[in-house]
Amino acid sequence: MLQTLILAAEAAPVEPKLGIFVNVDGAISGLIVSIFLTVLTYVMVNFARAGRPLPEIRKLPGLDSIEEAVGRATEMGRPVLLANRSDGVSSVHSFALWGYLAYVANLCAMYDTRLINIAGSYLSVAVNEEVIRQSYLEAGRPDAFNPEDIRYIPGDQWPWTAAVSGVLQREQPAACMWIGYWYAESMVLAEVAAQIGAIQIAATTNTVQIPFFIASCDYVLIGEEEYAASAYLSKEPVLTATIVAADIGKLVVIGIVLLGVIGQLINPEANFMDQLLRF
């Protein structure tokens, strides 16, 4: 009898939330956050387009140091290496990467410095090539673009790491940039690059790998700083407006956390913020 009831319960269709939305924790609250952020970003972008002043975003030394790193490579007559391993074209990390890639390629084209890009995803390598080609074109140096320096190494973790370590030893880049989501290979790559004396800039959102990069790299962009590159480096108010919107969103989250703490202190049994966020 119990078995039959369990099977019947499993087979029963799940009641959608509000009659239409998927019945998973946080579906409605997530929708509200998404709508709130979209509207906020849209408003901030329109503010920027109308020429209204926006709050300043803080300085990011890791991004400011990119020009210094490329300049150092130019002085030493050695290449710049920019790599990402595990992020495919549908990954938000790749979209962040293309901001870095465009900026670094533009600098390399202007300074006549070789840029080596290594991708671990066959999907992103084609986009990387197009982004770099466009940057060389914008810098007025299409002749300096070398497609052979945009390399695809299949992204299986340790073969990729071994291959990139080999490239580091052979090409001796003076500046290395590790952008994207990294796993345990971060330590090996950053240490090999440190051994060849390269200046290193890393950007990742993986909290487990951040300490490894901090130990071995000169500059590390942590968490959301990785995504700020295209807006920060372009200095365009419309793009900066999206970062301002995200910062306002963070302030709202701090407010929600404080409300949750106060709620728990007043009535620990109610778990009202937990219930609200799970809705």
Binding site: S34, L37, T38, T41, V92, F95, A96, T205, G223, E224, E225, E226, Y227, A228, S230, T242, I243, A245, A246, D247, G249, K250, V253
Partner: peptide, 8 residues
């Protein structure tokens, strides 16, 4: 928030 901002 950074990822959301990039996606937007």
């Amino acid at each position: 928030f950074g990822a959301m901002s990039t996606q937007l």
